[in-house]
Design a protein around this nucleic acid. Structure first.
Length: 565
RNA sequence: GCACUCAUAGCUCAGCUGGAUAGAGCAUCGGUUUGCGGUACCGAAGGUCACAGGUUCGAAUCCUGUUGGGUGUACCA
């Protein structure tokens, strides 16, 4: 449920009744439990406009505030804060509603839109490396989240399948004469070998360049080889996606080469708009206030990154009909996107009302704060990192229970991958992120393990209980009250996280929820002797709703839970 | 050089449209237990929010400048 807007409605109502002709600002969560559940700080802001003192205004609002159903108590504090307490009976009934609902009471957008989320985008010439991790999981989370909230999400995996390097690879494929599937098993090595030949042998390099031309001119033999290469390489990516529990499939692939045919048209249309200028032999768009132009066609006639992106943008806006297009790409490309978005809007390729956003993220660093590399300075393959995560997870959990060997494989996978993803998603995406195995695989603090542990602990309550839950939710003490309010905040949190494309808002919420639940559970026994039936039933429901919220929250992040841990 | 971005506790990070005494976790120190899963919970200590101005009733948050780090800077993607 949209908790905040319910309270805002009450305030708005009081404004109207008090004759205050202003749109009230939104309430916010109370900063401390002593200050109630929510607070309204708008009285101070209005003081100057209305020429009254803020406490007077606050009192005026309170006098006209309808107390009872939703808000049960309101107090003016300090210079003019209004502290609001929610009605425990109402909270309880709302939790019951959420508990009986598959979606936990989370509504869908009233006006759903089509959203394109562009993420992952691996290069087909190489294996996926750690540099692809953040884009892949942040993008997947955003896609999951918007889908859950009712938007029509179109995932787009803009794979790099075109360019000079493919000429090199195909030339090497020809030269070695080996069957593609064998020699491509280790794509990374194959690329390195080909690159070495390219750098060392002039004849080979020329041949590689010839192949580029051949592919581009549609030579059947070369295209077949190229296609085979892409298929195998994409297969590698799919292994990673499946291991990562990311929902990208082949249907979501819309490769760079898909836009090839449209590129001349892009140039032509820019000419029609009178946006193009030649500069040093290249075709450029000069934007106002920008130091450097956007080059859309090279001196030799070739097209660039920007050209393809323009083609992709207009395809997404006009053919797919997206109203929001989100690029989940490294922050270093901020300049590029700023310019390309500008050109897209100015040229009319993308209508003005379409929201174009660069969902930027920082670089992954090692524990000492340097860019994440292998010992010898190479890039870390993503698949190796994920395998290591599973091995480490096994180490972390093996002492806990008597797992069968099959169980431990499954659980270690869920725990290990979850740890890697959660650690990444739980920090503000824009800052650089320090990758630390020990921290992410800890049961303590804001980690996936702590969440999964809390979830498993609640499941164990239900294994012991083994009955049927009935009766009402009763809010008895302060911690129950706070837990219930926290549970009801779920939708507000998801909506804001979706709006800001900020997964860490979800993890922060989950961590607060779990912490609160642990405290509640410590203090409020459920199955112990002496707990009366009605209280037990009520607390079981709160526990169950908590578990379901954890599960749903983690699911949006692409992280699974286990019943035993 | 110019542009963008960041700077919060020893470390890793929260901090939403400006709001009350700036919050967590780790690490440190102390406490809770015949334990519904103690890898839990409670508490203590720890901050000039880089620095200096400004706007405001009110600034970690907005503006300007300074310092320090990162990134980008026309025919790669």
């Amino acid at each position: 449920m949209k908790l905040k807007s319910q309270i805002n409605n009450a305030i708005k109502d009081a404004f109207d009744k008090a004759g205050i002709d202003h749109e009230p600002m939104s309430v916010s969560e109370a900063t401390k439990p002593e200050f109630g559940d929510y607070q309204f700080n708008g009285a101070m802001a209005l003081a100057k406009k209305l020429g009254k003192n803020p406490r007077e205004i606050a009192n005026d609002i309170i006098d006209h505030l309808e107390l009872g159903k939703v808000v049960t108590k309101a107090e003016v504090a300090g210079p003019g804060f209004i502290n609001l307490w929610l009605n425990p009976l109402w909270i309880a009934s709302q939790c019951e509603t959420a508990h009986s609902d598959e979606r936990l009471g989370v509504g869908k957008h009233e006006n759903p839109i089509k959203v394109v989320v562009d993420y992952s985008g691996p290069n087909m010439a190489k294996q996926m490396h750690v540099g692809h991790l953040r884009s892949t999981i942040i993008g997947d989370t955003l896609a999951n989240l918007l889908t859950f909230l009712g938007d029509e999400v179109i995932r787009q995996n803009h794979i790099g399948d075109w360019g000079t390097q493919f000429g090199m690879l195909i030339a090497y494929l020809e030269e070695t004469g080996t069957d593609g599937s064998v020699c491509l098993r280790d794509l990374e090595q194959f690329y390195k070998d080909a690159k070495k030949r390219f750098d060392e042998d002039e004849n080979f390099a020329n041949k590689a360049r010839e192949y580029v031309v051949k592919i581009q001119s549609g030579d059947i033999h070369c295209l077949n080889l190229w296609q085979k290469f892409i298929d195998i390489s994409l297969g590698h990516c799919e292994d990673v996606y499946s291991k990562l529990c990311v929902k990208l499939t082949r249907d979501d692939v819309k490769a760079e080469s898909f836009y090839n045919e449209d590129l001349p048209q892009v140039i032509e249309d820019l000419v029609k708009q009178d946006l193009l200028k030649e500069s040093d032999g290249a075709q450029c768009v000069f934007l106002e206030g920008e130091e450097i132009p956007v080059i859309v066609q090279k001196g030799d006639g070739g097209y660039l990154y920007a050209t393809t992106d323009l083609a992709a943008l207009r395809y997404r806006a006009n053919v797919l009909g997206a109203k929001r297009i989100s690029y989940v790409v490294d922050a270093r490309q901020a300049g590029h996107f700023k310019q390309v978005f500008k050109v897209a809007k100015e040229s009319g390729f993308v209508p003005k009302d379409v929201r174009l956003e660069h969902v930027a993220f920082g670089t992954m660093m090692d524990k000492s704060g340097r860019p994440f590399k292998t010992r010898d300075g190479g890039t870390v393959k993503l698949i190796d990192l994920l395998d290591e995560a599973v091995v480490k997870a096994k180490e972390a959990i093996k002492e806990r229970e008597n797992y069968s060997s099959k169980e431990i494989e499954e659980i270690a996978h869920i725990v290990g991958i979850g740890a890697v993803k959660y650690a990444d998603l739980s920090i503000n995406r824009e800052s650089n992120y320090i990758f630390d195995w020990d921290k992410m695989l800890s049961f303590e603090g804001n980690t996936s393990l702590y969440m999964q542990y809390a979830y498993a602990r609640i499941q164990s309550i239900f294994r012991r209980f083994d009955g049927k839950i009935k009766g009402d939710i009763l809010i008895g003490d302060m911690l129950e009250h706070r837990l219930a309010v926290m549970l009801l905040r779920f939708e507000d949190v998801l909506r804001r996280a979706a709006e800001d494309a900020a997964p860490n808002q979800i993890t922060t919420y989950l961590y607060e929820l779990v912490t609160l639940f642990m405290r509640f559970y410590e203090q409020n026994p459920i199955l112990k002797e002496g707990v009366d039936e009605a209280t037990k039933m009520s607390r079981l429901q709160l526990a169950d709703l908590t578990a379901k919220t954890i599960k749903q929250g983690l699911e949006l992040l692409g992280i699974q839970v286990v019943d035993r841990l």
